[in-house]
Structure formats: structure tokens, C-alpha cells
Design a protein around this nucleic acid. Structure first.
Lengths: 216, 216
DNA sequence: AAATAAAATTAGTCTTGACTAATTATATTT
DNA sequence: AAATATAATTAGTCAAGACTAATTTTATTT
């Protein structure tokens, strides 16, 4: 249906569309690690295929069709992540890259069968909601640990960064989806966070860290 | 590691190496549906990478390394076929094409984990032996139904052709791996075979049919 | 052995999707 | 508003891997 590159662009544009603000060629280039000139070429191609619309004022936007197809790629990615973790016993820092390849295999009923086999999971191992076959999905978590009030306690619902560097760090800190965290103190100097993990000893983490943990 | 094309060439050459006789560029071209000129290019490339050796007299041969890598692609293909059939509930005429895509995903321990998850199967759903991680595998079945003696009874062990046209025909005839077949009569005119399936009514099938069923 | 057919190879082209370098637009400072 | 910085775009190039058409090699007939 689509080439590997087209799918990767669609996915990148979809991901960027989750943040606020307009989507520029440069932003897409950074997100994919490509040259902006290459992005301009692909913008032309995807526009011709009616998957996106590009307006200098509004930036890049997915069309209905583009949105639909991008969501299905995300669906496949997240389903495979569940499979890799639950069935093949991978750790959550190893699954992203493999799912990145598996997501491009699109053979009719494959995603739906996999979905059924996995018991129709709502969330993937990083806490991201898994789109249903019709494109619907639960609202993604959006409140960061860094935005919590001092003294409050919350549950880790998802991680924003899925790099293995971050996930391995979390593993070392004994933090996973479901972990209880209390925000003990915010250091005003650099917005570092002093937290208590599952009621245990206090640990200090950076602001960047706090912004990559989504809680509820 | 290798490009998609390189892997497909390796696999095609491996498959051809199972038959007797030398492997010519034309044979590879036919097997892949490519132009012989393209094959010549790739032969050069794979030779430079020391995956094959090409000698006009001997034809194309896999080097040790090439053989090893080709077998691992076959391993992944056959493991995924088991997965698709047993876990996702596909029928055996649907799995080949999907496995053809999945086989190219090669992420370290993926095949081994899948192997374990599936319970270390010996044969894939078409009766082909699944190579182990070290490249070893059971000897493929090689006796065709067409080569049996009239009157003898055998068990379907594997199918040679994995096209959905053939497999759907088998489905209609109620023939699968394990089915008992008695060779009732060989029609001398065109080598058609009269067979009895699981002790039931007689059916007539072509010579080509009989050559694509492997028995034991 | 010569003629013909088939196979292999070379040369040149095309498409995809990346790149660099140069140029033009748009924002941001001063 | 002019100067400058940043972003977007164009033009041209490159590699992979396919193709066609033309040529050379090798096999097969007669």
C-alpha cells in the first residue's frame, strides 16, 4: 500500500500532530533525522496522494485519510509491543525498535487477529492507548509528574520517552507503569524533583525526567 | 544487516540449491520473477560480500557464510508460519505471504524467543523442517506421492508447492498434513493418479499434483 | 563444423528516497 | 525599516535495485 518511507513520514506527522503548534518541514526533518530538503520532497508526494495538506501558514496537516492510515500504523506498533513484552518476554526497553519494523507489515486481518490473540489490550507497555480497528482509542495520558503539586501522590500511567536510555534508568529506579510516586519537594533552583517511589526512600530526579513521566 | 533484496536472493539461491543441478542466473531470475540482467548485478554484489561464489561451469553456490545466513532466513520464515497458523488462527493457504514479510525482521534474539514461545516446533505447517538456531534441521521429506507404488498407503508429510491455489485445492479435497492416502491406480496415459483419501471414495488427481505432495 | 537458439552479460535508463549546495522567503533583531 | 538569522525551497547528485535493448558467449541442432 505505502512504502516504508511514506509510512514513517505519516507516523512522524501523526506524532507531531499530538503536540500543539503547527508542523513545519524542519520539525518533521528533526523527528526523522532527515534533511529538510528530503522532507519537502515527501511533503509533495504525500500531498499528491491526498494524505496530508500543506499550507505555509498552517503547516502540515493530515487529511482524514492520512489520519486514518497513520492511526492504523500506530495500532500495529502498539499491538506488537504488547506481543513482544507479554508473549516473547522482552523488557520494555527493547521492544520499541522491533515494533518499529513489525508495524509496517500490513496484511489484511493481521492486526485484528493479533489484537484478539492478545485479548484486546487497551494500553501498550509504555502506557500509550492502542487504537481499535475503527481508529478509536482511549485518551492518552497527559499530566506529567513535573506538573503535580508538591506533596501529592500519583500513579505512573505512561512514559513519554521510549528510548532505552530512559527506560533502563526507570528500571534501575524500580519505576514502571503502576508505580506509586509521591512528589516530596520541588527544588526551585533547577526544578529538580524529590520523589518517593512506592513509599520508599527519597530520590532526586531532573525536570526533564519529570516531564517524561505521565501520571494519573 | 542485509537489504530486503539481498535476503530474497539469498533465500532463492538457497531454495534452488536444494534441487540438484547447477544454479544459473536464469533460474534465479525465474524463481524471483526478475530480469536476468538484474540477477547478474546482484550476483556481483553478493559475490563481493562473499555470500556466494559464481563460476560459469559450476553456477552459483552459497559460501559457508551465505548458507548460514540463508538458513536463518528460512528459520524465521517457518517459525512465523507456525505462529500465524497456531496462534493467530490463519489457514495454511494464507500464511506464506505474510511470513515472507516477517522473515526479514531480524532482531538479535527474536527468532529464538519466538521458537521458545512456540514450543520449539520441528516442522512448519507445510511440513518443512524448521532449522534450529545453529542451522541444523531434520531432513526434508523427499518422496512424492507420484513416486509411490500402486496399492501402497502413505501419510501426507509435506507439500512442495505452497501457493494458495494448491493449498486451497487440498483443503477442498480434505487433504492436510497427516492425511492417509492410498494410491489406488496410476493411469498410464497421462500419469494421473487415482487415490483414496482417508479410506474414502476414490478421486483422480494429476501427475503434477502427485509431485507436489511429499509422503512418508 | 556451421547455423541457430538460448543464456549471460554489458550499457544505459528509470524510480525511490536520500543527500549537498545554492537560493529565496520569512522571522527576528537591532 | 534595515540587517541578520532562520526556514523553506530548488537544482543537481548519488546509490540501490529494478528495467530494456544490444551484444557476446555458450549450447544445441542440423
Amino acid at each position: 500500500m505505502y512504502t516504508l518511507s511514506e509510512e514513517n513520514y505519516l507516523k512522524a506527522i501523526y506524532r507531531l500532530s499530538q503536540d500543539e503548534g503547527k508542523i513545519t518541514p524542519t520539525a518533521i526533518a528533526e523527528s526523522l533525522g532527515n534533511n529538510p530538503a528530503s522532507v519537502v520532497d515527501m511533503i509533495r508526494k504525500l500531498s499528491e496522494k491526498q494524505l496530508i495538506e500543506y499550507d505555509k501558514k498552517k503547516g502540515v496537516e493530515l487529511t482524514q485519510q492520512g489520519q486514518k492510515d497513520a492511526v492504523l500504523i500506530v495500532r500495529r506498533h502498539r499491538l506488537w509491543e504488547v506481543f513482544l513484552l507479554e508473549k516473547l518476554g522482552y523488557h520494555w526497553d527493547e521492544i520499541h525498535d522491533i515494533a518499529e519494523e513489525l508495524e509496517h507489515i500490513n496484511n489484511d486481518t493481521l492486526a485484528d487477529r493479533l489484537d484478539k490473540f492478545l485479548g484486546f489490550p487497551e494500553y501498550d507497555p509504555h502506557g500509550d492507548p492502542i487504537p481499535k480497528a475503527n481508529g478509536k482509542m482511549a485518551k492518552p495520558y497527559s499530566v506529567t509528574l513535573a506538573a503535580m503539586k508538591t506533596g501529592s501522590t500519583c500513579r505512573v500511567a505512561a512514559v513519554r520517552d521510549t528510548s532505552s536510555a530512559f527506560l533502563q534508568y526507570l528500571l534501575k529506579l524500580n519505576i514502571g507503569i503502576g508505580t506509586q510516586i509521591q512528589l516530596v519537594e520541588k527544588i526551585t533552583f533547577d526544578n529538580s524533583l524529590v520523589i518517593s517511589i512506592n513509599g520508599k526512600d527519597h530520590t532526586t530526579v531532573s525536570q526533564k525526567f519529570g516531564e517524561n513521566i505521565l501520571v494519573e
